[in-house]
Design a protein around this nucleic acid. Sequence first.
DNA 1: GATGAATGAGAGTTCATTCAT
DNA 2: TATGAATGAACTCTCATTCAT
Lengths: 211, 211, 211, 211
Amino acid sequence: MGSEVSTGNGRKARGRDDRRQAILDGAFALFARRGYAQTCVQEVAQEAGVAKPTVYNHLHDKESLYREAVESAADRVGARCVAIVEQLREVATDGDPRAGLGVPIRRLSRAYHDEEAFAVRQLAIAEAGRFPDLAASVRERTTLRIRSALADRLARLALAGRLRPCDPELAAEHLLALLTGPLEYRPDADPATIADAAVEVFLRAYGSDHA
Amino acid sequence: MGSEVSTGNGRKARGRDDRRQAILDGAFALFARRGYAQTCVQEVAQEAGVAKPTVYNHLHDKESLYREAVESAADRVGARCVAIVEQLREVATDGDPRAGLGVPIRRLSRAYHDEEAFAVRQLAIAEAGRFPDLAASVRERTTLRIRSALADRLARLALAGRLRPCDPELAAEHLLALLTGPLEYRPDADPATIADAAVEVFLRAYGSDHA
Amino acid sequence: MGSEVSTGNGRKARGRDDRRQAILDGAFALFARRGYAQTCVQEVAQEAGVAKPTVYNHLHDKESLYREAVESAADRVGARCVAIVEQLREVATDGDPRAGLGVPIRRLSRAYHDEEAFAVRQLAIAEAGRFPDLAASVRERTTLRIRSALADRLARLALAGRLRPCDPELAAEHLLALLTGPLEYRPDADPATIADAAVEVFLRAYGSDHA
Amino acid sequence: MGSEVSTGNGRKARGRDDRRQAILDGAFALFARRGYAQTCVQEVAQEAGVAKPTVYNHLHDKESLYREAVESAADRVGARCVAIVEQLREVATDGDPRAGLGVPIRRLSRAYHDEEAFAVRQLAIAEAGRFPDLAASVRERTTLRIRSALADRLARLALAGRLRPCDPELAAEHLLALLTGPLEYRPDADPATIADAAVEVFLRAYGSDHA
DNA sequence: GATGAATGAGAGTTCATTCAT
DNA sequence: TATGAATGAACTCTCATTCAT
């Protein structure tokens, strides 16, 4: 309660931001379901329970609306995945790498292939013509951020002698590729199974010889 | 006389198909550059040097136009890649696998990541809302076909003892993933370099022990 | 204050309805002059002094526009004719029926054959293919309503012994047919003359014997 | 067989006319079902089993096609009705007019209200905007021709003292009106019943006093 | 700040009509 | 003469965006 009324300003501002976020979330859902051109601002307004001009008050035009909706969702997805990668921190530096990697990588695989993550990637690519830099922006917020966090962990493992010496950035790319690639071919496969096979292959290629 | 008739017919029929293909090719180029909604049929017609209704005579509506343009290009890309994979036939069954794989995989990497291939994948995903089955259709024509051809080659290599025993389908997926994944992170990287690293990792994981 | 509000609301609401009615009236005039297909929504908008989408805001599409324009005019025509028929109320129950019927039937004849009434009937029939129920709807609003009012009057006359006993519905149909029929053959004839002949024949057939 | 091959010219010419008439008949059926604008020349061609340009070879453009199709059907309808009216010739000049009129008028009623007759009247009115003189042309070919034939018969009856002296043209209009009018109000009524009531009323108004 | 109403611009689609064969 | 193919011209409808309240 205290926080609710802490300041008149705070409440208003929070209210504004909430409404803005509600619009963005509804917009993202609609864009994901129907694509940019099929989704009209009218519908976004309805979904958020406001009138059309209100949408224009918060997001200046349809393009901003799209961009911000996608980037906002990308941040969410990126944050989720990075949080999982960072759980590799302690567990993975000792013990059998296979055991240490297994569980987190499975979780990463699931998070990286859930509905929202797919939608973010799709929307970023779909309108590459209209938003030439959106794909890069989303990549920054998701893939690169995740790769970076993962490379950190792999570097520590290599330093600890649990992986053979390697370029950690490239190793991370390879691990993520092994995670993502097979789902291209079998969209209905179980991410966990894919993950286990990926770890297997990754360790055979990158594990230290005496492992 | 026979040749006259057949030529006459052939010319006509060929003429029709040529025009149709010209429309599809122009459409694909425009769709790739601007996306589905931004591209108007008028422009497609201009690009192909015909009038708008002619486009409608050959392809029933804008949606068919898109679908057929994308599928036609997908067939082209698939055929190119499969042809390269099939060059692995002779070279790869003897000698050092590294040497045998290196060149064709580099070529595959380039073919798999050229402009047209990118565009095909992008257009298939971009309008998943409007064409729910197009992505699958394109996957069938490109990725799955290529994976299948590659799995054939890898199976022969495994049989020849040049790879460790493995599920050739999964091995193919992994090799292709190692080829494709890193380009997601560094779109400007050199496909050849990527390819070499991919082969390196692949062989460390899948090569027979005494290699 | 109450009046202010109600006026304000009234003005707004009235303004909306006025604009809607203006669109319908303009549309009816154009449809009558050129037919459904020849009239484009653009012109309707111009005629009403609004922009094209405004027409679509008020009437959902061209078909609704047509239907509502015709039905609205039909209501007008029906109301006019019924009002005339109801003037038969007092005059016709005593005195010479010929004298009592003469004037109102002349007026009815004119009202039933004025430009708007013709147009309504024509537009209802013209697009019977596209609007299979419009003809019935218009008949309900005009002919049947008028017949019903006229049958009421004739029933009273029969009850008063001024007409021979008869089915008033059928008698009304016959009177109206005698009024309308001849104009089919001579569109330029004077409705009043036609009316007098109709009354003459009607009374010879339906008048009480001692008249 | 003889007539089939009587002359090469005859056959050809007959073939031409047959094809032309087939086109007109198909066109009339389609126009009746869908209206002028909804019917496209393509469909008319299909219905007649020829290619589109063939239609243009026989009938110069869509407007001629419509006009000629409607007029041709109008001639058919008019001829049928006139033939029936002319059966009044012998029967009606002696004996009870009621008996003499009854049957032919029933038949006329049916012929005047069959599907084709309705369609002809509808198509003539429907496109009054585009073909300002078509309604008059059709009226000439149907209503006026029938009225004229009927007036002839009624004149003979009057001359024979079986009807009171009257303007036969007007009397014919009135009889036809009594026949047609009630069907406006009850499209599903039985034409024969209507006809009987019409004859009843007509004779009460126009019958000679001592009948 | 939020809304109902209005609009300018533009796109897909259809069709009568004409060539070239 | 009959046709397959091509086209110019329209027209319906939609939508992002802006006023006035």
